[in-house]
């Protein structure tokens, strides 16, 4: 009875969550004239033209490829530098630890608009404008602090006795870290990987500032094409639907890390 109500409430929430996304899918399968003239719950004049255009026009699909490249780079860099740092924060005291920990997060707190200009100058000096690595590096500004914070939380939940036992058993630090510790915080790594992917994928301002053509992200391609063609709702909706797909795949792959949870609980 009680679980029935809970299930029903959860299902209702999930349906409401999907409504705007459904509406986007609905629009993506219709042409612009049809969208603007009639209101229908299910597309009647189904067309895949919007998707065909995106998959055949290089200026469209290269946007997806560019975004995927720098987002993956960013995810790998962020998680790999954050893992050891989070371990240090969760296990040891050291000079300035608390200050550095909070300072990291302050890098997410600046309003990006005015920072775009010096960012451009910085990466121009490095000769990195319009490269994937530039966007990947720039996005570490907000993703590395987040990764450190999330991972630190998960690591602190693991009792320190585990580390000590491993060292007593003669494990070296790297061997302990990769063989014992990382499997224990799989959930945290999964969540962190997803978050870094997500924040880099949806960020537009920096990515647009640092690129012109060769590494232009899909979100920027969408705004440009929209203003140039005077809002083609169907095409825009189809592009929007396609922006969800890569991330949905990522969460599908990390879901087991998130779902399996904490190995210690079963010991």
């Amino acid at each position: 009875m009680k679980t029935g109500i809970v299930r029903f409430a959860l299902a209702t929430y999930l349906v409401m969550l999907m409504l705007p996304v459904y509406w986007m899918v609905n629009m993506s399968l219709r042409d612009n004239a049809d969208i603007l003239s009639t209101f229908v719950l299910f597309p009647e004049n189904l067309t895949f033209d919007n998707y065909i255009k995106i998959f055949t026009d290089p200026s469209w699909y290269s946007g997806y490829i560019n975004s995927m490249i720098y987002v993956t780079m960013n995810m790998v860099i962020s998680v790999s530098v954050a893992l050891p740092a989070a371990y240090a924060f969760s296990r040891y005291r050291f000079i300035g630890d608390k200050h550095v920990f909070f300072w990291l997060l302050t890098n997410r707190m600046a309003p990006p608009a005015v920072f775009a200009l010096p960012f451009f100058q910085l990466y121009q000096t490095m000769g990195l404008i319009d490269t994937h690595i530039a966007v990947a590096l720039a996005h570490t500004l907000f993703n590395v602090p987040l990764a450190v914070w999330v991972l630190e939380g998960f690591m602190s939940a693991i009792p320190r006795e585990i580390d000590e036992t491993a060292y007593l058993d003669g494990y070296s630090f790297p061997r302990f870290f990769f063989r014992i510790f990382m499997p224990l915080i799989k959930t945290g790594i999964g969540v962190t990987a997803f978050f870094t992917f997500m924040f880099s994928w949806v960020e537009l301002l920096m990515a647009r500032t640092l690129t012109t053509t060769e590494a232009k992200p899909i979100a920027a391609v969408m705004t440009r094409t929209v203003s140039a063609t005077g809002l083609d709702w169907g095409l825009l909706a189809a592009a929007g639907v396609l922006t969800i797909v890569p991330g949905a795949l990522v969460i599908y792959f990390v879901r087991n890390y998130m779902a399996k949870g904490f190995a210690l609980g079963r010991v």
Binding site: L17, M18, P20, V21, M198, W201, V202, E203, L204, I218, A219, M222, T223, L236, A239, G240, T243, I244, P246, G247, A248
Partner: peptide
Amino acid sequence: LPLLIPWNV
């Protein structure tokens, strides 16, 4: 799903 959509979209 909602988290994965670029903010302008």
